[in-house]
């Protein structure tokens, strides 16, 4: 099995898994916060926040990638500050691929979480408050367990989206084998050279397998969590 894929193909697969894993993990806390705010709080600029979150879904990915380059590149406002203060560079690094994937997957994650939070009866949260629970404890002991199925679904969706991200990633971090060449970038690269159809096809099969595996796993996890939560 291990020699079915060439070293370059392995590299692309492992990098994609790593990028998607961190993109999902790091965006989850912010995703929960934003989804909770959109579902439960009334505040000025709520619509603006909603639009901003969903923008990457509508914009051409290349535009998102270019905006990232402008903002987070060495010369960019945030990127320059990050580099000068902490020596952190995102553009043309795998960490930049994580940022691009996280932003592109964020709308899907927030949507799933928001639906899950809206489905939790606020009366249960009120009941918890009358029993002495603070807001944080209400969230961790009532809201969070109840949204678990939605959270799992949202995380898997985000992971799958991150695995498939291409446009913003290639614009922001380019397509450097071993560093920023993710699975889709590798497929694209193989298709550009003569004789690359075979490795490209192998990576296509891998992509399909990973996507299906992720969906099946999420279905199974969400069903188990729903059973636990339904109280039966």
């Amino acid at each position: 099995m291990s020699d079915w894929l060439g070293p370059e193909e392995w590299q692309a697969l492992l990098l994609s898994l790593r990028v998607s894993f961190f993109a999902t993990l790091l965006s989850l806390p912010l995703g929960i916060l934003v989804a909770y705010a959109l579902a439960r709080w009334q505040f000025r600029g709520k619509q603006l926040l909603n639009v901003l979150v969903h923008l990457p879904l509508i914009l051409p990915p290349v535009v998102t990638g270019y905006l990232l380059l402008l903002g987070f590149g060495r010369q960019g406002a945030i990127g320059g500050w990050l580099y000068d203060s902490f020596g952190i560079m995102l553009a043309f690094r795998w960490t930049g691929a994580v940022l691009a994937a996280a932003i592109m997957a964020f709308p899907l994650m927030v949507r799933a979480l928001r639906l899950a939070i809206e489905a939790v009866d606020p009366k249960l949260e009120q009941a918890a408050a009358t029993l002495g629970a603070s807001r944080i404890r209400v969230f961790s002991s009532v809201t969070l367990p109840l949204i678990l199925p939605g959270l799992i679904a949202g995380a898997v969706l985000a992971f799958a989206k991150a695995m498939g991200e291409f446009g913003a990633t290639i614009t922001f971090v380019s397509n450097i084998p071993g560093q920023t060449q993710t699975l889709p970038s590798a497929i694209y690269a193989f298709l550009q050279v003569p004789g690359g159809e075979a490795p490209a096809l192998r990576l296509v099969v891998v992509s399909i397998a990973v996507a299906m595996g992720a969906l099946l796993a999420s279905e199974w996890l969400a069903r188990r969590a729903a059973q636990r939560v339904s109280g039966a």
């Binding site: 249960l124 009120q126 009358t130 002495g132 603070s134 009532v142 939560v229 109280g231």
Partner: peptide, 19 residues
Amino acid sequence: PTRKRRVGYVFQDGRLFPH
């Protein structure tokens, strides 16, 4: 705040935590 009033509220619809 509610959580510090120490009232035991029994709601019409019970509101038990399903999980």
